[in-house]
């Protein structure tokens, strides 16, 4: 059997192809794919990590999940959080972005300002906000007192805690959403707006009749991106409230963290992580499906 020139060349290419992708495959295989599969397996076990004991418990972890008020609360909170972030941060981002569209002076300056929170570390920013929220010495309560309004408990109150995290996250993500929308808006030809102006359409009509329909793909992206990011929220909760008070601001990832690293229930935490994985996957599938149908 003699190799033809073609197959030899092809085999050489194959060699290089595998060589070039192997670092990524090896690292991902070891540190991403393997732990992901392991999580799935562990969710059916009771894992005692120090003693290295693994005992099969079947679906017990999942059954316990259904009765775990803390976890149910965490799911509820995460869901509420995601709704707020998607709708408020997304919508505000769109409104602010549409103001940029007409080539305005200082546009670059504003953009730069709005983007600062996004590039700052969530942890450091949350520490600063923790100070702003402090019921006794924080700026927010001082401002309320200045204008004669009743002060609030902010992060120290179970009624305000989740909203404190939402407000922080809106502040943090607004710049990103705005920049994405600005990029989307730039793809709308000016001609359409000009035509509408001639037809006598006001800014609000233009916004709802032209802007929104023209950037549906961008809106869709922002919704998906913010939803997935919201499901994974952790840093700001950890720093601002640690999920409290009274679990008022606990979220799914914090539950995973607490169950695994505070209560040593690694199997149970894996089951929770599995639920998170399924949620993220569902959203991704929906995204894929819709973007196929809409041909975005």
């Amino acid at each position: 059997m003699q190799d033809t020139f073609l197959t030899r060349a092809r085999k050489e290419r194959w060699f290089y192809a595998y060589l070039f992708i192997s670092p990524v495959l090896i690292f991902f295989g070891l540190f991403r794919v393997y732990p992901a599969l392991q999580t799935l397996v562990f969710s059916f076990f009771k894992v005692e990590i120090v003693a290295r004991r693994y005992s099969w418990v079947g679906l017990k972890n999942f059954a316990l999940l259904l009765q775990d008020d803390s976890f149910i609360r965490a799911i509820k909170n995460t869901f509420i959080y995601a709704l707020y972030i998607v709708f408020i941060s997304g919508f505000l981002g769109l409104v602010l972005a549409s103001m940029f569209n007409s080539k305005m002076k200082l546009g670059a300056f504003f953009k730069a300002i709005y983007f600062i929170p996004y590039i700052t570390s969530t942890v450091a920013a949350a520490v600063v906000w923790g100070y702003l929220y402090d019921p006794k010495f924080g700026l927010f309560n001082m401002l309320l007192r200045l204008v004669g309004l009743p002060t609030r408990g902010w992060t120290a109150s179970s009624r305000d805690a989740l909203m404190c995290i939402v407000i922080f996250s809106i502040w943090k993500s607004l710049g990103y959403n705005m920049v994405i929308f600005i990029a989307g808006l730039q793809n709308i030809p000016d001609m359409i707006y000009e035509a509408a102006t001639i037809d006598g359409a006001g800014p609000v009509t233009k916004f709802f009749r032209i802007t929104i329909p023209m950037i549906v793909p961008t809106i869709f992206f922002v919704i998906i991106y913010n939803t997935i990011l919201s499901l994974k929220v952790f840093d700001q909760v950890f720093v601002l409230t640690a999920g409290g008070p009274a679990e008022a601001s606990t979220v799914v990832v914090l539950q995973i963290y607490n169950q695994a690293f505070l209560n040593y229930r690694f199997g149970y935490a894996s089951a929770e992580a599995f639920v998170l994985f399924v949620s993220v996957m569902l959203i991704t599938v929906v995204q894929y499906w819709i973007s196929r149908r809409m041909e975005i």
């Binding site: 803390s70 009624r159 409290g244 009274a246 679990e247």
Partner: peptide, 15 residues
Amino acid sequence: EALGSAIQKVLHDEA
């Protein structure tokens, strides 16, 4: 953990 979160919920009027 169980008792602590119960006390916390009561103090915060959550339950």
